[in-house]
Every structure is written in C-alpha cells, then in structure tokens.
Amino acid sequence: MKRYSKLLAIAAVALAVAFVVYLRRPSPAVVAQAGPPIVAVKVPALSAEEQKGEVAYRAYCTRCHGEDGAGQDGVAPPLVHPIYEPNHHGDQAFLLAAMNGARAHHWPFGDMPPVEGVKPADVADIVTYVRALQRANGIY
C-alpha cells in the first residue's frame, strides 16, 4: 500500500507542476508580439475593395502575420513573399488555411490554427488586400 501512496504523491506533484507551467505560459497576444517584421512591405494606394480587405486583415491577421503582411520573426511568416504568390498558393489556399488551419510546411513557425470567427467573405476580402500588397512588391 505504501508503494501506491508514493506513486500517488509523485503523480499529484507532477500534475501540480504541469498545471503551474500551463498557467504561466504566455498568452497568444503576448506571443504574437514576439518579433520584428520579417520583410519590408511597400503599401500602395488601395481601392475601396482593397481597403475593405485591409480592415478585415487588421481584424483577423495582423496579430500573427504582422502589419501589412510583413510577418513577425518568431511568430508567423510574411504573406508578402514569393512563397504566397498566386500560382503557388492560390486564393483557395488562403481560405482553407483560415477556416481549417494549416500544417507547417514552408516555415519553422509551427502549424497555423484556424482563425476564430473569420467568415469566407472576410477571407475573400483579405485575399484581395494581400494580392494588392503582393503586386505592389513585385510578387505576381
């Protein structure tokens, strides 16, 4: 019986330590402020449609992907980057990533979780904005 009591005590301590570590982890908002932009992004004059996408981008994407799709070192990749040009990552890829999350495959940032609360129409607007930024920065 003493053996089981020791095991139970060890398990309780391990559980308590794990719980404290869990509570002390950084919140997503803190993690999202971890690093500087990865790329410099030239922002063009935006059409009304692109401005609508900018508003949606700021609401759903800036926290991780940084201002104007420049990425954040240690957090998330830039969307204004040749990897995300339309022939490699089409508009549907953005929709699928936002709605379902995406497995890490080009960058060492880990998997992207689904974007909470985003609607397909929001993603379409965001893609319009990101594509305008890409074109202004020589990514076609």
Rank of each mutant, 00 (worst) to 15 (best):
Val130Ala: 02
Ile10Glu: 04
Leu96Arg: 10
Val20Ala: 07
Val21Met: 07
Ala59Thr: 14
Val30Asp: 14
Val130Asn: 04
Val80Ile: 04
Gln33His: 14
Pro113Met: 08
Arg24Asp: 07
Tyr4Ala: 15
Pro108Asp: 07
Gln134Val: 10
Cys61Asn: 01
Pro36Met: 13
Ala98Cys: 07
Trp107Tyr: 13
Gly35Trp: 04
Ala14Lys: 00
Gly117Asp: 08
Arg24Lys: 12
Val80Lys: 01
Ala59Asn: 14
Ala34His: 13
Tyr60Trp: 00
Tyr57Met: 03
Ala124Asn: 14
His81Glu: 05
Thr128Phe: 01
Ala48Phe: 02
His65Leu: 05
Val127His: 03
Ala40Thr: 15
Lys42Thr: 15
Tyr84Val: 02
Ala102Thr: 06
Val30Tyr: 08
Val123Gly: 02
Pro26Leu: 10
Ala48Pro: 05
Lys119Pro: 05
Phe19Met: 12
His88Val: 13
His106Asp: 13
Arg103Ala: 13
Met1Pro: 15
Arg63Leu: 14
Ile83Met: 01
Lys42Arg: 13
Val43Gln: 02
Tyr129Ala: 11
Ala136Asn: 09
Gly53Lys: 02
Tyr22Gly: 10
Gly117Leu: 04
Ala16Trp: 08
Lys52Gly: 13
Cys64Tyr: 09
Arg3Gly: 12
Pro113Ile: 07
Asp125Gly: 01
Val20Ser: 03
Ile38Asp: 03
Gln92Trp: 00
Val55Met: 06
Ala9Trp: 08
Ala12His: 04
Ala76His: 02
Asp73Lys: 15
Phe94Gln: 03
Asn100Tyr: 02
Gly71Tyr: 00
Tyr140Phe: 14
Glu54Gln: 15
Ile83Asp: 11
Ala32Cys: 11
Ala98Thr: 11
Gln92Cys: 10
Ala34Ser: 14
Tyr22Trp: 11
Leu95Asp: 06
Ala16Val: 09
His88Leu: 10
Leu95Ala: 09
Lys119Ala: 11
Ala98Lys: 05
Ala14Leu: 10
Tyr129Ser: 04
Asp73Pro: 05
Tyr4Arg: 15
Ala29Leu: 09
Met112Thr: 10
Ala121Gly: 06
Val55Ile: 13
Val21Asp: 02
Arg135Thr: 15
Tyr140Trp: 12
Val13Asn: 05
Ala93Arg: 14
Pro28Asn: 08
Val20Ile: 09
Glu50Ala: 13
Leu23Phe: 00
Ala11Glu: 00
Lys119Gly: 02
Lys2Gly: 13
Arg131Met: 06
Pro82Ala: 03
Asn87Gly: 11
Ser27Tyr: 08
Arg3Ser: 15
Gln72Tyr: 02
Ala97Ile: 04
Val115Glu: 05
Val115Pro: 04
Val123Asp: 01
Pro78Met: 04
Leu96Ser: 09
Val21Arg: 05
Arg24Met: 14
Val118Pro: 01
Asp122Trp: 01
Val31Asp: 12
Met1Phe: 14
Pro77Val: 10
Val80Met: 03
Val21Ser: 07
Asp68Val: 14
His81Asn: 11
Lys42Tyr: 00
His65Ala: 00
Glu54Asn: 12
Lys6Met: 14
Asn100Asp: 12
Leu7Asp: 11
Val20Asp: 01
Tyr60Thr: 04
Lys119Cys: 04
His88Cys: 06
Tyr57Ala: 02
Val123Asn: 04
Val39Pro: 06
Met112Glu: 07
